[in-house]
Computed example of a mutant assay.
Amino acid sequence: MHYLPETGYLRLRQIIGDPHANPPIPPIIPVSKSTWWAGVRSGRYPKSIKTLGARITVWRVEDIRKLLQQS
Results as ranks from 00 to 15, higher is better:
residue 6 E to T: 13
residue 37 W to D: 02
residue 62 E to Q: 07
residue 8 G to R: 13
residue 55 R to T: 08
residue 3 Y to P: 00
residue 50 K to F: 00
residue 54 A to E: 09
residue 27 P to T: 07
residue 5 P to H: 07
residue 62 E to K: 10
residue 64 I to E: 01
residue 28 I to G: 08
residue 4 L to E: 01
residue 33 K to C: 11
residue 28 I to R: 01
residue 49 I to N: 07
residue 13 R to P: 04
residue 40 V to A: 04
residue 26 P to I: 12
residue 33 K to W: 05
residue 1 M to D: 11
residue 41 R to I: 06
residue 59 W to T: 08
residue 70 Q to H: 02
residue 52 L to K: 12
residue 58 V to N: 08
residue 59 W to V: 02
residue 7 T to I: 10
residue 19 P to G: 01
residue 23 P to E: 04
residue 24 P to G: 01
residue 67 L to T: 13
residue 6 E to L: 14
residue 55 R to E: 09
residue 42 S to W: 07
residue 64 I to T: 11
residue 42 S to E: 14
residue 24 P to Y: 05
residue 41 R to Q: 14
residue 5 P to V: 06
residue 10 L to G: 01
residue 63 D to W: 03
residue 38 A to K: 15
residue 48 S to R: 00
residue 53 G to S: 14
residue 23 P to R: 11
residue 45 Y to T: 00
residue 43 G to F: 03
residue 23 P to A: 02
residue 25 I to V: 14
residue 22 N to M: 10
residue 26 P to H: 09
residue 61 V to E: 05
residue 45 Y to M: 00
residue 54 A to N: 15
residue 24 P to W: 06
residue 58 V to H: 05
residue 68 L to G: 08
residue 20 H to A: 13
residue 29 I to Y: 15
residue 4 L to A: 08
residue 3 Y to L: 13
residue 17 G to N: 10
residue 8 G to P: 12
residue 36 W to N: 03
residue 41 R to S: 13
residue 30 P to T: 00
residue 71 S to K: 00
residue 18 D to S: 12
residue 9 Y to P: 04
residue 34 S to F: 05
residue 30 P to K: 01
residue 8 G to F: 06
residue 24 P to I: 05
residue 25 I to F: 03
residue 5 P to Q: 06
residue 39 G to E: 11
residue 71 S to I: 07
residue 20 H to R: 09
residue 19 P to T: 02
residue 32 S to Y: 04
residue 38 A to W: 03
residue 38 A to M: 08
residue 70 Q to E: 15
residue 62 E to F: 09
residue 12 L to D: 04
residue 38 A to V: 12
residue 11 R to S: 14
residue 10 L to V: 06
residue 9 Y to S: 12
residue 59 W to G: 03
residue 3 Y to N: 14
residue 13 R to K: 12
residue 65 R to L: 00
residue 40 V to T: 13
residue 20 H to V: 00
residue 2 H to G: 08
residue 33 K to E: 12
residue 23 P to S: 04
residue 50 K to T: 14
residue 43 G to Q: 05
residue 47 K to A: 14
residue 10 L to C: 01
residue 35 T to C: 11
residue 36 W to D: 13
residue 23 P to Y: 03
residue 64 I to H: 08
residue 21 A to F: 06
residue 16 I to N: 10
residue 15 I to V: 15
residue 28 I to C: 11
